[in-house]
Simulated assay, not measured.
Amino acid sequence: MRPLDPTGLPLRPARLRQVGDYTALQFTRGQTQSRMLGGSPDQLLIDYTRTMLAALLWQPRPRSICMVGLGGGSQAKFIHRHLPEARLEVVENHPGVIALRREFRIPDDDARLQVVLDDGARFLAARTARYDMLLVDGYDAGGIPAALSTPAFHDACRDALRPGGVLATNLFCADPAPHVERLRRSFGAGNVLVVEEARMSNQVVFAWTGAAPAGDEASLARVRASLPAAAQAALSASFERVAHALRLRKGHGDA
């Protein structure tokens, strides 16, 4: 019997695949949703996962973070290890993915981490002005689910953020333009930044509710000062790249 999401939608089973030292999460053979290196379980192996965490340029010391989509938990593990002052809530709609959390060495729930089985759109709609940072990377076997592709969902993302909060979302799809336009409608055209992944087909989109960081050396210094050395090293290139995109945006006269 196929697993069901919290709204009753049938899902493909979540499968674990072991290849050498790597553990992968798959819904369809040959299509990897998440990957973990056994000797370094909280390492961010995939470029876009590091780019998304450049949202720290907006919020160097977030107190409350939400993730939509657990997957193999690489970002959740990274945040839990390196941002000890942050409380992280993760909403995942696939019970089979949550059932694999030990295989992916995702820590048990504690005072700083809670993993919830729920529909991501429904979960966010009930949490107004709750988060400093929101990371959206929810995918099923067919790509970005319909429930995470509506104007109402993007409005809920905006409303779930506190003043000055920031959203980072991963877009891996044939036509990202409609998703970007919905974000611009919800957040304002001047409050959206699209960053291409050079070695992948993804785009990472940032959207925010306050002022954008300047992307200058002061912005970079603030975020570096907020992180331990290991996290700085892992994210340094992503900070530089997103800061450069922010400076270019400012130079072109965007608000």
Rank of each mutant, 00 (worst) to 15 (best):
L124K: 03
D159R: 04
H179P: 06
G165L: 15
L148C: 08
G164C: 07
E181T: 05
L161I: 06
A129F: 12
A129T: 12
L171P: 08
R127L: 06
R127F: 02
A121P: 06
L171N: 10
V116S: 03
G120P: 07
A174K: 15
D175T: 15
A126D: 06
G120Q: 02
G165V: 13
A125T: 10
D119C: 00
P176V: 15
A174V: 15
D137A: 14
V116H: 10
C173I: 12
A129Q: 13
D155L: 11
R158V: 11
D118R: 05
A177L: 13
F172T: 07
T128H: 13
R182G: 07
P178V: 07
A147K: 00
A177R: 10
H154N: 08
P151V: 03
D175Q: 14
R182Q: 11
P178F: 05
D140L: 02
D137P: 15
A168Q: 02
G164S: 06
C157T: 06
T169L: 14
D119H: 00
R184V: 03
A174F: 06
D132C: 11
R162G: 05
Y131D: 13
A125R: 06
A174Y: 04
R130F: 15
P151A: 07
R130V: 10
P176G: 13
G120K: 00
L167D: 08
F172K: 02
V115K: 00
I144N: 05
A177S: 10
A177F: 03
T128N: 06
Y139P: 04
D119I: 00
P151T: 03
L134E: 09
G143K: 12
D159W: 12
I144T: 07
L183I: 08
E181V: 12
D175P: 10
A160Q: 04
P145F: 07
D175A: 14
R130M: 08
G143I: 03
A141F: 13
A156K: 00
T169D: 09
L171E: 11
D118A: 12
V166Q: 04
V180D: 14
L183T: 14
A146Q: 02
D155R: 11
A156Y: 00
N170H: 12
R184M: 04
R162F: 14
A152E: 10
